[in-house]
Design a protein around this nucleic acid. Structure first.
Length: 300
DNA sequence: CGCGAGACAAGCATCGACAA
DNA sequence: TTGTCGATGCTTGTCTCGCG
């Protein structure tokens, strides 16, 4: 006996296979109704469970199957509320490394065309990269250094705005107490009453010795290589910082000493501004240093 | 001039997100 | 697990500043 489907006409081996087919036959006019009834009956055999997402800790629901009045918990049951959470990986450095190594190894052994090579246009060195990165960056150079050499002729320059920005920031740093470094004059280390300090040039070293001796003789209370500073306008009316050299405290007063080999136009502007602001400033030239050294019997 | 430090440009590694 | 893309931040190296 032949077992032929009444909806599509296809022949099946047995009557049970035919009955199974005809229920799900795409040409069966009752298939949608059947699907509806089936899902309803399946829902009756599941239990609504509220779970907490492993990643974001928010609540989400699943339907767990019931068999013989027991809940079936499979290893594939959802742990996360969404695909987004499920794909959020928080790898440690070690884990990232092992994943990366594994992927690289697989790709290389499978010879997948993701990887490619290009030659640096400057040093000619061959470098491995991915096709996507080659497309994305239009890679021509193997390193930042080679890229720089390539762009040397067309090198980037600071704009007027960026220059002003740097100028403003550097001035602010000096105004707020940034220390001086570098300079034409050599930095020298000198032993003083309060330990080793660094000063600029031999004039300042000599001033340290003089002030130490004055302190020993109690002519002054103490002195320091100061970080005190004032703001002044230079010859172009630009605001600048002026940093004093030495600060001296006596019983009666506080004053500053500036050592100078020669005077420049801006120096006069600084000193005038210091006096205007009420600071007592003494300038020691070479002859003043020699005079103090003779007076205090200091050998140079 | 020499220094320290921020601005800036561009390459690159890494990671999240997504899909299969 | 494998593959890809885009965003982001780090790195590298130079430019530029103001100070004495």
């Amino acid at each position: 006996m032949k077992h032929i489907c009444k909806h599509c006409g296809i022949e099946k081996e047995t009557s049970s296979i035919l009955s199974g087919h005809s229920v799900w036959c795409l040409k069966n006019p009752d298939i949608e109704e059947h699907k509806k009834n089936l899902s309803l009956s399946l829902r009756l055999k599941t239990k609504r469970i509220i779970k907490i997402c492993e990643r974001c800790h928010t609540k989400f629901e699943i339907y767990r199957k019931i068999k013989n009045e027991r809940e079936i918990i499979t290893s594939k049951e959802r742990k996360c509320c969404s695909r987004k959470c499920a794909n959020t990986r928080k790898y440690t450095k070690e884990k990232s490394k092992t994943v990366y190594e594994k992927v690289s190894k697989t790709l290389l052994t499978q010879n997948i065309s993701k990887w490619t090579f290009f030659f640096c246009k400057i040093c000619g060195k061959q470098k491995k990269t991915t096709i996507s990165k080659l497309k994305k960056y239009n890679k021509k150079y193997c390193s930042r250094k080679c890229s720089y050499f390539a762009s040397k002729s067309n090198r980037w320059k600071h704009t007027k705005e960026s220059k002003n920005k740097i100028s403003y920031l550097v001035k602010e740093q000096f105004r707020k107490g940034r220390k001086i470094s570098g300079g034409k004059t050599k930095w020298l280390e000198v032993n003083t009453n309060r330990g080793k300090i660094k000063v600029q040039g031999s004039y300042e070293v000599r001033t340290c010795h003089i002030l130490d001796e004055m302190e020993k003789r109690k002519e002054i209370l103490f002195w320091e290589y100061t970080n005190d500073r004032i703001q002044y306008l230079d010859k172009n009316s630009k605001q600048r910082s002026y940093l004093f050299d030495f600060k001296i405290c006596t019983v009666k007063t506080i004053y500053y000493i500036e050592t100078k080999g020669y005077v420049k136009e801006n120096d006069l502007l600084k000193w005038n501004e210091a006096q205007k602001q009420g600071y007592v400033l003494k300038v020691w030239y070479k002859k003043d240093l020699e005079k103090q050294e003779r007076r205090l019997n200091l050998s140079v």
